[in-house]
Design a protein around this nucleic acid. Structure first.
Lengths: 119, 119
DNA sequence: ACAATAGTTGAGCAGGTATTCAACTATTGT
DNA sequence: ACAATAGTTGAATACCTGCTCAACTATTGT
């Protein structure tokens, strides 16, 4: 109990004022959880290429599979993740399912990312 | 060999024109690799909170450990990843290592992310 | 010189995840 | 009705990754 705060942590508080200010401004945990989950969708090579391709044109599963040199199954699994996080939408026309981006935020996120890595 | 292109994929090309246009515009693989790696840093709950905290104030390892209720070791491991991807910089003053964001792109990326999840 | 503390590091482990495989549904054309 | 094809799905596997633990370095104060 010699610590100023009884957290499950092996530290004394070195700059208590800083910690208190930052903690006071901190969004609730759920927002960080959601944010991490959003960026998780961009953090895989396959998914990021799918998202980029769909930012250019609407495509079906086979198109994406050919474009990326992967199986329909692998693509379909990733598209499911992207559907569940509401990053892509789809529309079935006949046998074929056409995928496209759910909204324009995805393009914005790409732009910011490319700005960072291309410098 | 009945496929129009001999990729290791179980598909026919359904919309060859679409695939060709997208492929022609596609950045080289390295860029997607780098982009995925960048977003990987934002895709973990701990790292995203560290980055957010550092976007508010410069902090040392102990401050971050207390703020997030984690061990110095866990924080230090994550800071190492963030250092290696050039998202944070650090400065040792005495015994204490002060971490801060490497550039302003990180804040921009946060903003875009929050825009998306808060709707 | 010594104790105490900030921070780093590598090994090990537990949980997570991306692809493969095989089986399945749905739709089209004959 | 049947064959062919687009797409999905769940289980299995192999890989990746985040935390813990213990040992270590570096710096400060006494």
């Amino acid at each position: 109990m010699e610590n100023k705060e009884s957290f499950s942590c092996d530290c004394d508080v070195i700059h208590e004022d800083v910690v208190n200010r930052v903690r006071a401004a901190m969004p609730e945990g759920k927002h960080f959880y959601d944010l991490a989950n959003l960026y998780k969708m961009f953090s895989d090579n396959t998914r990021v290429r799918i998202l980029w391709a769909l930012s250019r044109e609407e495509m079906c599963v086979c198109d994406l599979a050919v474009l990326l040199g992967m199986t329909k199954s692998a693509i379909s699994h990733q598209l499911k993740s992207l559907r569940l996080t509401n990053l892509v939408k789809y529309e079935k026309r006949g046998k074929i399912v056409y995928y496209s981006l759910a909204d324009s935020h995805v393009k914005d996120i790409f732009e910011k990312g490319f700005e960072h890595i291309l410098e």
